[in-house]
Nucleic acid binder design. Structure first.
Lengths: 161, 161
DNA sequence: CTCGAGTGGTCAACCAGATTGACTATATCG
DNA sequence: CGATATAGTCAATCTGGTTGACCACTCGAG
């Protein structure tokens, strides 16, 4: 049975599912590489947290929550977890006594660098199959779609199941 | 801030995330259409269940569980839920007294037809942005990738977060 | 300056969708 | 035939969330 039976039925409307399964495949390959390197298999939500904190030096827990599409309580829990593991730390907010600013530790920054490398590897795996030109076209097309559908608005990250 | 900050950093390895967010966007549009039509917003897992049962006339709960990537208990729960809602029914298995065969009800088949239509609509929305040729190319590329990475093996459907 | 409305983060209770464990009836195969 | 494996169900537990509440703090209109 090639692929899953979902794909053998030649009906329109299958590209969404192809996007999902291709992404899932890439995620699995990413995690497989992490495991090979003996690194902790942090979840995608952690990865998003890392990258958000790295890109937003003044990010607070509530900012992170909005970014992840979860409640502030869930975000706070994730931050506590990552702080316990030594990847993230909380610092006093420069102007707001209620808030705390999130920052990656050295350990967190190193992990993010590694993740970047591995994602590029995984993407190169796709390029090996379809070619670099097609990869670039894919990149452009998907960006165009997201721009058309969201414009300046944030794109939800959290999957639904 | 165009898109999310994840995309403005010009580093390699972003196509996986583009796949994920494009799929998430399409899922949201699909669910928005369902809501517009006043239909129950069944979860993606339900959709996968419908399609699997429709494509596999002798499917049992354990088969479904393997397909969804969950335990037999979780699959049984989902089936019970869909049966309670009138979309699925359990029938005696022709040869195995322990097992039950799953089948879509008329109501379930109608829902699946509607879902097919709406997914085609959502996909057409992507085609509007990138053109039908590029959509076909995307389709071919992703299939090639899944074939290269999985061959005849089933592709996992359940997202990780 | 005051004060009402709103907000950041934490604690606690609760929830939904899963997993693990167990069990009984049934199936398989040497 | 009997040992092992399996389908489906029930129950307990887990995990990653949400909701509700609360207190200290912020903001802006009057």
């Amino acid at each position: 049975m090639p692929l899953s039976p979902d794909f053998t039925d030649p009906r329109p409307g299958q590209v969404p599912l192809l996007l999902a399964t291709a992404y899932r495949t890439m995620t699995d390959r990413f995690h497989a590489r992490l495991a090979e390197l003996g690194r902790e298999p942090l979840r995608p939500a952690h990865g998003y947290t890392f990258r958000y904190v790295a890109s937003n030096p003044d990010a607070t827990t509530v900012d992170l929550a909005a970014h992840l599409g979860v409640t502030k309580q869930a975000a706070s829990k994730a931050v506590t977890e990552l702080a316990d593991w030594g990847y993230v730390e909380r610092r006093p907010h420069p102007t707001d006594k209620r808030a705390q600013v999130l920052a990656l530790t050295r350990r967190g920054r190193d992990y993010l660098k590694l993740a970047d490398r591995l994602w590029a590897e995984v993407e190169a795996g796709l390029a090996e199959v379809i070619g670099r030109e097609r990869l670039a076209a894919l990149d452009r097309d998907l960006r165009a779609y997201l721009d058309a559908t969201h414009g300046d608005q944030a794109v939800p990250l959290r999957p639904v199941w």
